[in-house]
Design a protein around this nucleic acid. Structure first.
Lengths: 244, 244
DNA sequence: CCAAAAGTGTTAACAGTACACCCATGG
DNA sequence: CCATGGGTGTACTGTTAACACTTTTGG
């Protein structure tokens, strides 16, 4: 949304800039809640901090939004900043990962250094891509932790609260938005999709009833039969793919 | 969430501050989508801008977040900033108005002056309080515009998009969260509550079926019968109040 | 008395839940 | 051949939607 400035307004704007830059401004970061589902539970990507504050603590990946010089060059959008951080931390390309804004955390003193406002995002990574994440990262110590049973120790800053907000959000959303499909491989079985629902909501679903629900998704054109079968320990299962 | 800084970390933090302040930072504002329901349609509060850019355009109420000096004094939280702006623009006290964070808009060039990131909030004002709003404001030109039929002309900045986002949000939320009760007087009739649903979703509801839905709210303890009746042109209706 | 809103009742369609049961396969 | 997950069917319950109907009031 680029607006041009009429010549008549230019003097006002210069005056404004001079006044505004005299006032302190907050730093703005993007923080990422990166989630996947593996072995029937929900997992979160954490990075180990190297610098104070909270040196050696586990924290959400994130970083400062690039603002340019703030005037002629206004830098990157928040979405671009989130995608850039995601790529830097996971090595995964933009189009392979679901990314959506979560909430903005801006209490005073949430960072002891200075006023920092954090725009939090959550990302959903397919389980077939998740194993490559740790390798792709630039030497920083990263780790997937399970959120289902072994909830991790306290995180840096207010990151615990951010994680809680993200989990609440996807729980509320999984039943009416097609986000579960971002947490299964490109082709998947009914049981695999059910496992995602179970991991997110922390409860078991009746296999038979879930199957009927799945049939409605087929009727609605949301998913379609894919060629082949999944050969596991027991009876092979039909595989499906997400449409669009 | 106040974290104390260990003495051993202080030198790092000072170094960090010196480095960080050298980089440009964005300005951060809060913008408010203030809504009410009157005469069976959804209304939005707009203010007329006096200063460039967009002088004389209609825009959402809002203003800069107070950051203090950014270090020892980190200023006000985003929620406090939103409540402060709400009080300044409407004169309504904190506890009379529902206020919730909406989304953060941070594209580059959304403000021609400089990089501005806007944390948008939406507020729901009871119709019995809405008439006092224009009076309470500090001489700025303000106006309620209908969103249901006569959608207003283009707004300043990306405020049209912010309004759209707010309307989408409350439409999605009205069916599972008790936000409709923030858009009726303290005591209300079934028809009045139905009018709120109709204004928000832009569709008519069968009076009889809505009544049954309302009965479930009573069973769930969400609403309770209030003393008296509403005397209008026709047959008087029972009045109810929201519980908790 | 009559228009119009308040309020009651009936029915069909459909989604959620619990559970019984058959099917196909690898070990 | 058998344990196990894949897959089918059924009965019960509660919710939604459409609509016919009665009641109560002001003008």
């Amino acid at each position: 949304m680029k607006h041009s400035i009429p010549d008549t307004e230019k003097p006002f704007i210069d005056a404004y800039r001079a006044r505004a830059t005299a006032y302190p401004r907050p730093s703005v970061t993007v923080d990422l809640v990166i989630l996947t589902v593996q072995d029937t539970d929900l997992k979160l990507l954490l990075v180990r901090r190297k610098q104070p504050p909270f040196a050696d603590w586990w924290a959400l990946p994130g970083g400062f939004v690039r603002v340019g010089d703030g005037f002629e060059d206004q830098g990157e959008s928040l979405l671009d900043a989130a995608h850039r951080e995601l790529a830097e931390e996971t090595g995964l390309p933009r189009d392979k990962v679901f990314l959506e804004q979560l909430y903005t955390f801006g209490d005073a003193d949430r960072d002891p250094r200075m006023r920092v406002i954090s725009v939090a995002w959550y990302a959903l990574v397919r389980p077939d891509l998740a194993p490559f994440v740790t390798a792709g990262s630039d030497a920083a110590e990263v780790r997937w932790v399970s959120l289902s049973h072994e909830r991790p120790e306290a995180l840096a800053f207010d990151h615990d609260r951010i994680v809680d907000t993200a989990v609440e959000r996807i729980r509320g959303k999984v039943d009416y938005a097609p986000i579960a499909f971002d947490l299964v491989p490109p082709t998947f079985t009914v049981a695999e999709l059910r496992a995602v629902y179970e991991a997110i909501n922390g409860q078991r679903y009746d296999a038979s009833n879930f199957r009927r629900r799945f049939k409605r998704m087929i009727d609605d054109g949301l998913v379609a039969r894919a060629p082949g079968k999944r050969h596991t320990a027991r009876r092979p299962a039909a595989v499906y793919s997400f449409v669009r």
